[in-house]
Design a protein around this nucleic acid. Structure first.
Lengths: 215, 215
DNA sequence: CGCACCATGGCACCCGATGTCAATATAATC
DNA sequence: GATTATATTGACATCGGGTGCCATGGTGCG
């Protein structure tokens, strides 16, 4: 599983002065993940990873800001492609349909990467320190959703509805992921679809009722 | 703001052999929060907190498993009361209305604690390390919701709909909290109500559409 | 009193994370 | 090919959160 060098760096950086990198973020992340799978996340120290990659411990932190980020790999890149995918959707597409489409696309992986992706997600959702760290990643993901909802509704991304929509989308995704990890023959995309349907009627009755009760 | 000794300990523990506790979890949490408010979370070391409380650093970790948990205080106790509140709701109450009711109750605070609660939430939502740690607390909260939804739907708490519902409820709450913190004259409970309404129609169209497309 | 019991806190230690700095390697330019 | 600009690299050193260990100190009871 060879990755393009500099795959994680945002600037393509065709020709640059100075010493060439000894490794790439993608490569380093894979080395770390293999160790995590084999020995467990907490049992693997950054020193172990550095040794396995043949670089210095300090250098690991130059590629990834923290040990946690190693497990997340190139999430930022994926976020960016979701953002641009949303931008291509037609204005007249219903908002919910657009979100569903973008989220399904975000979670579509080639067959040969599915197993790897599954194991990675198993770590991210089950290892406490990783699950904790994930909040920050999810916030970035929600921001993408909120920005789109705000655009479509002519509001600010910080307004209530964009924010709440983003949270709901995240919840839909993660509950689908949880089911996916529990049943190894499940289809992730179909689960996301079903989770989306859960929001049906949710809140409307309660909110209407409440508005009637409190003048 | 004096707290009962052992307020955080589940067993009431009337008379116990052995040395008496030097402080209580509630008291310690308040001391820590005051320091966090004044100097910032990251700038406050556990040693500072221990010194302010007049106890040893090691002892702090005996009351709270981590520095993060100090900021959360007695969340588990609040969870427990939400669980028992849900248990008192009539079976024939619509599920969404029941959830809305329990969540509103969970977030009702006496006026004199509102300011304190606000500052605490501001920390929890904005300090990165606390926001990260919150995932684990939210998971426990969602578990309470999922258990109730499962009970009402005769499913398991790990099934898709209970899990997704719990996520949606959490999202509703947190987006309301965010608005509340941004506008200091806002009414938290009303914001939660409005956020609940956001779920209206969410997903239903998209999901139906999708089911039609994929045989 | 003496005993069992439990909280305390000092100490050493691990590990993740960060700043500094000198050595080194390479690309572009002359 | 030599020079220079630019980055990488890793060896320190340091800090703070978290943990195991164990002696010590306070409490109630027989």
């Amino acid at each position: 599983m060879k990755l393009e060098p500099e795959a994680a760096v945002h600037a393509p950086e065709t020709q640059r002065a100075g010493r060439a990198r000894a490794t790439s973020a993608g490569e380093l992340s894979h080395i770390a993940l293999d160790l995590f799978f084999e020995h467990g996340f907490d049992e693997t120290t950054v020193t172990d990873i550095a040794r396995a990659a043949g670089i210095g411990r300090r250098t690991v932190f130059r590629y990834f800001p923290s040990k946690n980020d190693l497990a997340w790999g190139e999430f930022e890149t994926m976020l960016e492609s979701m953002r641009s995918h949303l931008a291509t959707l037609p204005e007249d597409m219903p908002l919910q349909a657009a979100l569903r489409d973008a989220i399904i696309e975000f979670n579509r992986f080639p067959d040969d990467e599915l197993h790897y992706h599954r194991e990675r997600m198993r770590l991210l959702l089950n290892v406490p320190s990783l699950a904790a760290h994930s909040t920050l990643k999810y916030a970035a993901w929600r921001e993408v959703v909120a920005e789109y909802v705000a655009l479509r509704r002519h509001e600010r991304p910080t307004d209530l509805v964009p924010r709440a929509s983003a949270w709901i989308c995240l919840g839909v995704c993660l509950s689908a992921y949880e089911q996916w990890l529990a049943a190894d023959d499940a289809d992730l995309l179909e689960l996301i679809d079903r989770a989306f349907a859960t929001t049906d009627g949710f809140g409307s009755a309660a909110a209407a009722e409440s508005r009637a009760q409190r003048p």
